[in-house]
Design a protein around this nucleic acid. Structure first.
Length: 740
DNA sequence: GAGCACTGC
């Protein structure tokens, strides 16, 4: 038990799952777990696997049940609720929550904090006939939806009535909603529209320990609210690990409550000497587990796709040989990372049949976002990949770095969800002790242009001294402010401009917002919306396997005549046109579109998201710029053929140039490119349409990434005269704003 | 001739 100073109240809980309910597993037989334990884990799970995520496809017509059905469901669920640690300590917890404006609640996995506490508070609201509703924020969409669904059942209402949720593209609430689960991005958006959050009497920040940029921002806003216009607002910070002190101190030493969860013991094993080949070590470890341990699946954490693909290939080769020679289970290796198609991802959830053992090689995705049942052994490389933003250079670097102790704990915990487990750490115990306690928060290594714009939109004058939960640092903030000034979102005095206000409301990064606004002034909004939509969807263009790379490139080039000459932005528009107009107009089935995506190695699911983003952007543009359907739909008469219209292409690319003036490089006589900002050499990324085209006078790119060397991604050809034009106009805009 | 973790509006 954790000991804390007297100001902190400790709530211990009821008996842990006793050993007696877990039958001792027979060697090489899947261990049996007490049915109650399984139930709790399943019901309490706030996360879900990506297979379900794939099923989820935007606004859904949720099943409406009648009162009798709802009541029956409530009764059947109540039994399970009563076994939850939070439920059993209800009175003690509620006394604290009632008597303190801010409470930090540390609840381990399986404690029931995310489902039960909001309901207790809801009961209070009704009992006391109080106004206002409860917001519970989540870092992920799926979690918000699943929690709301579960809690609506427990509470006995239809989803979207008293209990509802709100995530991008899907608002499932009505005027009667009193308990709302929402992503932290959604709450920030609500804050922009209603600065005092007057709708709410309670705000709960769940999973605060993950320390996403958006969660950190919300914490800052909440503190300024309770110190100012909303002293009555009740705040509960929920976290899974021990960052409690930091949260407590931020909120003037708010009390900390501990609620134990239900989890099983995980034994740790370390290497005697450090490993120099992590893939080799991980394979050896799996083979060893397979030979000496009881049945149960293995989950391995590796830093990235490269190591994972390598490990899967080796394991599946080795495993077959070993299983033939000795009487051990056949190991089946599966990769798991975000860039895999949903179908490939879902393979990790299907249980293996027969005398086999599933081995999943995963990135960090399995640390929080995806839960795989049946895992009894975790093998941890102790490494992860992290994107670090260098604000001085305006460039992102992708580094492989050691994880933190908190992260190592989280990874090993994945072995103890259903029964006792084992965790093999492929590093020395002495090295473990040298690891940082906590992962560096995201905001400290991210581009803060967008957060700064949000604060400016909210009316914060002194950004550096704002109530930051974690101040990203003066230099980083000043770079953000400068960036916004160049985008004409701020004027000379640092005040937000009308343009800046619109930029803050658009659901895309500031640079792209700026491009969109320029496009609405230049009369090419419809085309630019299509391209921006493609750019804001991750993993739209997948990497072809090496053996089919040339073939896929050839196919893409055949379709994209404009892209061949003008680069990747125009290519995206050409691909969009085929997907949206040609395939649709020939009334082709979904299958045909799916095949087309497959042939070109494009994510089908990604394109569906592109359509959603496009719809949303069109709606915002109508509202913000007073555009009507005609402005937007004018290009839709007939099938647009962007590749044949030179003037149109220049117009579009010039719009992008206003947002990415800094991201340009000039062609040198030796055919290399030098950036306009620092004069450094930059290479066109080999995935670009312009990779083999060495004759551009200049290039513009939306991303500058350093891996083995500096690479420009999403590259377009530009004329040097355009650059001059835009720079002149840009200063003109800034000057005009000052004189206003 | 590269190869990139994860979210969110």
């Amino acid at each position: 038990m954790v000991s804390m100073s007297s100001k902190h109240k400790i709530v211990t809980t009821t008996k842990k799952q006793s050993k007696s309910v877990v039958k001792k597993p027979h060697p090489f037989k899947r261990s049996t777990v007490h049915p109650t334990a399984r139930k709790i884990i399943r019901f309490e799970e706030t996360e879900t696997n990506n297979a379900e995520d794939d099923e989820y496809d935007g606004p859904t017509n949720h099943i409406q049940n009648n009162k009798q059905q709802l009541k029956l469901k409530v009764q059947s669920l109540l039994k399970t609720r009563k076994t939850l640690p939070v439920y059993q300590n209800k009175d003690e917890i509620m006394n604290h929550l009632r008597s303190n404006p801010v409470t930090v609640l540390i609840g381990e996995t399986g404690s029931g904090k995310s489902t039960q506490i909001p309901q207790f508070l809801l009961d209070d609201l009704y009992k006391d006939k109080k106004h206002g509703s409860i917001a519970v924020t989540q870092p992920r969409r799926v979690a918000a939806i699943n929690l709301a669904t579960r809690v609506a059942q427990e509470f006995g209402c239809n989803l979207g009535s008293t209990v509802g949720y709100s995530v991008r593209f899907d608002n499932c609430t009505n005027s009667k909603t009193r308990l709302k689960y929402l992503t932290d991005g959604m709450l920030l958006r609500e804050l922009m529209m209603d600065r005092n959050l007057k709708e709410y009497s309670v705000v709960i920040i769940d999973e605060a320990h993950e320390r996403t940029v958006l969660t950190d921002l919300i914490l800052g806003f909440l503190k300024s609210l309770i110190q100012g216009p909303r002293p009555d607002l009740k705040i509960i910070v929920m976290s899974a690990t021990i960052q409690a002190e930091k949260f407590s101190q931020f909120f003037n030493n708010a009390p900390i409550l501990f609620v134990e969860g239900r989890k099983f013991r995980v034994t740790q094993y370390y290497l005697k000497a450090p490993s120099d080949d992590i893939v080799d070590s991980i394979i050896r470890c799996c083979v060893q587990i397979n030979q000496s341990e009881q049945m149960g699946d293995i989950l391995c954490f590796l830093p990235g796709q490269e190591e994972i693909d390598k490990a899967v290939t080796i394991l599946n080769k080795v495993s077959e040989v070993i299983a033939k020679e000795t009487k051990v289970p056949l190991m089946i290796g599966h990769p798991l990372y975000a860039a895999l198609s949903p179908a490939q991802q879902s393979l990790v959830f299907s249980p293996v049949k027969g005398f086999k053992r599933k081995v999943v090689f995963s990135t960090n995705i399995a640390e929080t976002s995806v839960t795989i049942s049946g895992v009894k052994f975790v093998v941890d490389s102790g490494l992860r990949k992290v994107k670090v933003w260098r604000h001085q250079l305006g460039l992102a670097t992708l580094l492989t770095v050691p994880i933190s102790q908190a992260s190592a704990m989280q990874r090993s915990g994945r072995a103890g969800r259903e029964s006792e487990g084992k965790c093999y750490r492929l590093y020395c115990e002495s090295d473990y002790k040298k690891l940082p306690f906590e992962t560096e928060p995201e905001i400290a290594r991210s581009d803060v242009t967008s957060p700064v714009l949000m604060l400016k939109r909210y009316g914060i004058k002194d950004i550096v001294n704002w109530t930051w939960f974690e101040n990203p640092g003066r230099d980083s903030l000043i770079m953000g402010l400068q960036e916004l000034y160049t985008l004409a979102a701020l004027d000379d005095s640092g005040k937000i401009t009308e343009r800046g206000k619109n930029m803050a409301l658009l659901p895309i990064q500031p640079h792209l917002s700026s491009v969109l606004i320029k496009a609405s002034e230049s009369g090419c909004l419809s085309e630019v919306i299509d391209i921006v939509s493609c750019l804001s969807v991750e993993n739209l263009l997948l990497n072809p396997q090496p053996e089919e790379r040339d073939e896929v490139n050839e196919r893409r080039l055949t379709i994209c005549n404009g892209g061949k000459r003008y680069g990747d932005l125009i290519m995206l528009k050409e691909l969009f046109n085929v997907y949206f107009y040609e395939l649709d107009k020939s009334s082709s089935s979904a299958d045909e579109r799916r095949d087309w995506c497959k042939e070109l190695c494009i994510s089908y699911r990604g394109f569906k998201n592109v359509i959603k983003v496009r719809e949303q952007l069109r709606m915002y543009c109508k509202r913000l710029f007073g555009k009507n359907d005609q402005d937007l739909f004018i290009a839709e008469e007939g099938i647009p053929k962007i590749g044949e219209n030179k003037d149109e292409i220049s117009k579009i690319l010039k719009c992008f140039l206003t947002g990415f003036t800094k991201n340009c490089a000039i062609g040198m006589p030796d055919r290399s490119y030098r950036t306009v900002s620092t004069g450094e050499t930059i290479s066109v990324h080999p995935s670009s349409m312009l990779f083999s085209n060495k004759s551009c006078p200049g290039i513009m790119y939306t991303e500058y990434v350093f891996t083995t060397k500096g690479y420009a991604r999403n590259v377009s050809r530009i004329e040097l005269s355009w650059l001059q034009e835009v720079v002149n106009n840009g200063t003109a805009v800034a000057k005009q704003k000052v004189s206003e």
